[in-house]
Design a binder for these strands. Structure first.
Ligand SMILES: [Mn+2]
Ligand SMILES: [Mn+2]
Ligand SMILES: [Zn+2]
Ligand SMILES: [Zn+2]
Lengths: 157, 157
DNA sequence: ATTGCGTTTAGAACGATTCTAATTACAGTT
DNA sequence: AACTGTAATTAGAATCGTTCTAAACGCAAT
């Protein structure tokens, strides 16, 4: 998986260059951290980690850089509610779903299963009768429940 | 559909009574408005409408009442991001999905299609290999795209 | 009618995000 | 290597949505 992250980083840097955006040390530091982060971090998460090696880093810069990536389609934003209402940022551009643990809040990527034609036509029908003429651009799916670790903990108590 | 809303209202009032919560005029006004609202209103939306007929109503009361309903499982909360980051409240307790318009932000309920066993087992497998041991409590699905009205507008321009 | 305690209220506090205006520094030019 | 235009960074203020607080109120049981 290291190569995958490397590729992500390259794509991000290329995009900044191509858009004539400046390759500042702040941006590169954010990119290095973000491209390898599977945890769906909040802006706070990233800021806190960046601060240790980059004490002058500002919040606005974190948000600005994530915005630039989002504009390029290289990052997306998740709003999952729950404890903290903070947005979570996702460097994984492959279409995928999310499993969110009710107890610990961990977010896991779930690759999309190629859907059976019968099922997807049934879904399409349900959609079309409830929202006629709606044209779908994307479908998001969130599984809510308990991750393996939290389920184990719950059984012990 | 009027009867359905009436039933919702009755269930909400019954629940307050059963929980020994007081049937204040504020709560009843919120319930009357909310039980018949298919638009997934924000707290602001409800507050603004309540204020016209109930000028002393406070924000805290709106939130408190929605919390009480949520605790009873009679209301749920949606965090869809986008323009406003405000939570949307949903009095529809049937399991259902949502179609959200990118342009106008409208949210439409989509009943769940009874899934084909083949498809759901494929999904289960994808979930289990990416998040082994995760126990699912609920699945949320959001269709993003353009509603019929906004698509029409887009074609004209 | 009395009264206790749950409820409402206005406004302050809070967390997350965006904006502002002054400073800094990248990258292209000389 | 120095210069320079302009984009980016910074700290802090502002804003938005939501929750908290403490005092006043009023439902409902007696
Ligand atoms: Mn993800
Ligand atoms: Mn709904
Ligand atoms: Zn967990
Ligand atoms: Zn629309």
């Amino acid at each position: 998986m290291r190569t995958e992250h490397k590729q992500r980083y390259e794509r991000m840097v290329d995009d900044l260059r191509q858009k004539k955006l400046k390759l500042t040390p702040q941006r590169l530091a954010i990119l290095r951290l973000f491209c390898a982060d599977e945890s769906h971090p909040t802006a706070q998460d990233l800021y806190a980690r960046l601060r240790t090696t980059f004490p002058t880093m500002s919040f606005a810069t974190v948000y600005n850089t994530l915005d630039a990536l989002a504009l390029a389609g290289l990052s997306s934003t998740l709003n999952l509610g729950g404890e903290s209402r903070a947005s979570r940022f996702d460097p994984n551009t492959d279409p995928h779903h999310h499993a969110v643990c009710d107890a610990c809040g961990s977010i896991t990527d779930i690759p999309v299963a190629t859907p059976a034609p019968a099922a997807s036509s049934r879904d399409a029908h349900a959609l079309d009768s409830a929202a006629p003429g709606f044209s779908v651009r994307a479908v998001e799916r969130v599984y809510r429940g308990l991750c393996a670790a939290c389920r184990k903990k719950r059984l012990l108590s």
